[in-house]
Design a binder for these strands. Structure first.
Lengths: 231, 231
DNA sequence: CTATCTATCTCGTGC
DNA sequence: GCACGAGGTAGATAG
């Protein structure tokens, strides 16, 4: 890992062309060869970057560039796509290297697979008398998140999303269309379950007779992480 | 901008919970208060982060932590969501600050809007005798990318994507459904135009009578950026 | 390997 | 301000 704080301008040519005028920025060169160009704002996305695998060639500035204050040129080339990044470096404010070694990696816990598991365990959130048939019920065009039966014994297909959008409704619609052709299952009603449902998606779903259910993740897992203490 | 290279462990509680074991990493604190935790690999996405607006409180380690080699604790709290990040810092290898100022920002050129413009200018790519009616033709459920007429004068609705997926076909299908109810337009045929079209999307489109057209961006703009020189 | 789907997505844009 | 779509999406996962 090498961290350089310097005046620089950056030109990228690849899927698009982009340019960054000369200004002070942070250049992060990782051990795998990748390069990130960060400013003092924005979010975690760099202003510009090159991802591994890539090679960096340092070129000496020519006389004209040297006169203009250019101290170094980094030409970064993506190995597979040929995308190019040219970093023109002026004044260097700091330059430090340190070997970090391989990172042990991030341990995540709980997102959408978790929602599906929780809903399967608390299937009566769909309404009293509901019973789970199975998770990941396989159809010819893919797995339905949850198949259940309501109090009358009729089939219910459930599509689960963290954020419910129109595409989720379309997906569920395709499943319902298919499943309702199966005499062993029909009639199958649909439930669109999500933490949030976009207004347009709700309108489309209800227009097609699909019921919308909002899932409260924190309540379902029985804790509110907002109030959990770290350590 | 403050750059710290140090041994650290990180705990995040928010949309999910995540943990990073103690290891050497780069901590990037931006002027807007945001914090990025980077390792020496991976892509431009940090291992963990907190985006602005957020506040960072530095806490002193207690006796037990100090004995374990903890030199500092950063408690980062997202102002709006309350998400928390706790960074436990051990040995510090380097620590540098520099004021970068406001960045002039990235200048982009040429992606999908460009594709639409190019296709409007070269509308005969859809077939001989085609004529442009207008770009961004407005309907009740949103704008159709391009409305044209074929050699016989019949309406053609075009959906443009860089990468054509199933969602794009669904989108065009909704437009066609709506437009074919308008006696002034009907019958309207559909064209799904993209640089790449996913096999499933192509199957779905053709099954619905929608024609697929592959767009060659480089050919349409008349240059190949792979061979363009920087400077 | 390819294809699909998610994301603490981020980022723009239009309303 | 929110809603929606695009991304040099990146990253995980299933086939």
């Amino acid at each position: 890992m090498r961290l350089v704080i310097a005046n620089c301008s950056v030109d990228y040519i690849g899927r698009l062309t982009a340019h960054l005028p000369m200004a002070p920025r942070v250049l992060m060169r990782k051990a795998d060869g990748s390069l990130l160009v960060h400013s003092d704002g924005g979010s975690y996305k760099p202003l510009n970057w090159m991802s591994a695998p890539c090679s960096i060639v340092e070129e000496a500035p020519d006389a004209t560039q040297a006169d203009a204050g250019v101290t170094a040129l980094w030409r970064v080339t993506q190995t597979k796509t040929g995308d190019q990044l040219l970093v023109t470096i002026g004044e260097v404010f700091s330059d430090h290297s340190h070997d970090l070694g391989k990172d042990p990696g991030l341990e995540k816990d709980g997102v959408e697979a978790h929602l599906q598991k929780l809903l399967a365990d608390q299937i009566d959130l769909l309404g009293e008398g509901h019973a789970l048939v199975r998770r990941e019920y396989m159809t010819a065009i893919g797995p339905v998140d949850i198949l259940a039966r309501d109090a009358t014994g009729a089939s219910v297909a459930v599509e689960i999303k963290r954020r419910g959008g129109i595409d989720g409704v379309e997906q569920l619609t395709r499943y319902l269309e298919l499943m309702n052709r199966d005499p062993l299952l029909a009639p199958v009603s649909g439930v669109f379950a999500a933490q949030e449902i976009a207004p347009q998606a709700r309108t489309l779903a209800e227009d097609r007779g699909i019921r919308c259910v909002i899932l409260d993740y924190d309540e379902m897992r029985g804790v509110d992480p907002r109030h959990m203490r770290l350590f």
